[in-house]
Design a protein around this nucleic acid. Structure first.
Lengths: 241, 241
DNA sequence: TATGTGAATTGATATATATCAATTATGGAG
DNA sequence: CTCCATAATTGATATATATCAATTCACATA
């Protein structure tokens, strides 16, 4: 049903990313759009390819686009004074990114940077605004998505302020396994520095905790490849052990 | 114009809180509603009075209402394991509170507690949902409100993870003066413990920083009454001095 | 295979912040 | 006004975490 709708849109679209971005089951906020509305969305959007390490959106930059990630892994960074940075969360395929300023002040509140190669589409914010006003279901879905993303980040940050380092590393490992990669030995792709930046701690400290976990037999690590051996232990430590 | 619209609604409404909650200039998300829609919103809403210290919404509780604060001061708390708590921000008059779970999972992600006596209205979430689907401008306003609130909290938390204690206390003092009370010698109402909980530090540590600021002539403090004498200094420290 | 460059790791030490304990102030109840 | 309970303050100490420096590792390039 949904896929038929997309077939009708255009061939250009299929060879573009839409058929993947917009047709990925329950969690796409675009499912509720009519063919007309999808066409409006797709028209004039630009598909852009980023290499690993490139900046997709830059904090404090004016925000006229929403980004729809087709494939690859990206990180959302809150840049502070000096070179302080905090990685708020990762973004995998089929996510919509607003940079935080959507609907408010039109400025990016975060930087978004490619971790692996990232294939994505830039959609004009005005299109989003128009769809919100035309389709209330879409407004609803957007509110939901927005809220969910913000709550995740918020809960994560609250954890960072309330837990000791082992708890934070546990949370990170569980997040990577269960939310991002969804396999057990997983290749995190991220450097130690980046992992540390997700927990608001020093790289050295992060490595030390990781080593403790290794010695305790909770995980095994080979480069960026991480295998969680004892998830229960991590859950326990997460609740502050 | 707006006030006339409200006059038409009903006398019950005026003696209720709506004429204040809904008629407060540019920043009310209810301004865009028609008379019919306002009536829908107001019907069956309940006005509730809380004494200082009482819990308005409780974290992890199911969320079937949105709260509209008519008067008083409330605090938004993220409760962690044990008795750890973090006060995310304060809520003054004429604010709409969703408890964080609106549109997502219908569970409260925060606790909201009265600091002073609080007068507020409970509005059924279903009403909000219906208005979102009927009035796209309202959906837009809600998205905006929601995003703004979340970004504020997020920025605040990022600051907490990236700054030393003096920077965090500076941020808190500036927040209280400029965003909440909007007068200079202001009565914070909050205990030292509560102020500390807003910066994710111990009460003792908070008191020590406050003392340093006093000795440096940056502020003067008498009980919960705080006078900022050198705002520039606070701004400087905020950027990490 | 050699070699160089950046990342990862380890160790020694410094420092920010929390904890624990004691004392002083404050405001309400009688 | 006095007494009591609670909040605020101060001090001494412990601890989590950062910083700095050195070493090892990984791996691409010549």
């Amino acid at each position: 049903m949904e896929s038929r709708k997309l077939d009708e849109v255009c061939d250009k679209c299929k060879e573009n990313c839409c058929s993947r971005c917009f047709d990925d089951g329950e969690d796409s906020i675009f499912n509720c759009l009519t063919t007309d509305e999808l066409e409006l969305l797709v028209k004039e959007k630009r598909r852009i390819h980023f290499k690993a390490g490139e900046t997709i959106l830059k904090q404090n930059t004016s925000a006229s686009h929403v980004v729809c990630v087709k494939s690859g892994l990206a990180k959302i960074i809150a840049e502070g004074n000096g070179d302080k940075k905090l990685i708020l969360r990762l973004v995998a395929s089929h996510s919509i990114l607003t940079g935080g300023g959507l609907f408010i002040d039109e400025f990016r509140h975060f930087t978004i940077q490619a971790v692996t190669a990232v294939d994505c589409c830039f959609i004009d914010s005005d299109k989003i605004y128009e769809l919100v006003s035309r389709n209330s279901q879409f407004a609803f879905e957007l509110l939901k998505l927005n809220n969910r993303q913000n709550m995740e980040m918020l809960n994560n940050l609250v954890g960072i302020t309330q837990k000791y380092m082992p708890g934070r590393v546990s949370d990170l490992l569980l997040y990577l396994k269960n939310k991002i990669f969804q396999t057990n030995p997983f290749d995190a792709r991220l450097s130690r520095q980046e992992l540390a930046d997700m927990t608001s701690m020093t790289m050295e400290s992060f490595i030390r905790i990781l080593k403790e976990f290794k010695l305790a037999g909770i995980i095994s690590v080979e480069g960026t490849n991480i295998h969680i051996l004892d998830e229960d232990a991590l859950n326990l430590i997460s609740r502050k052990g």
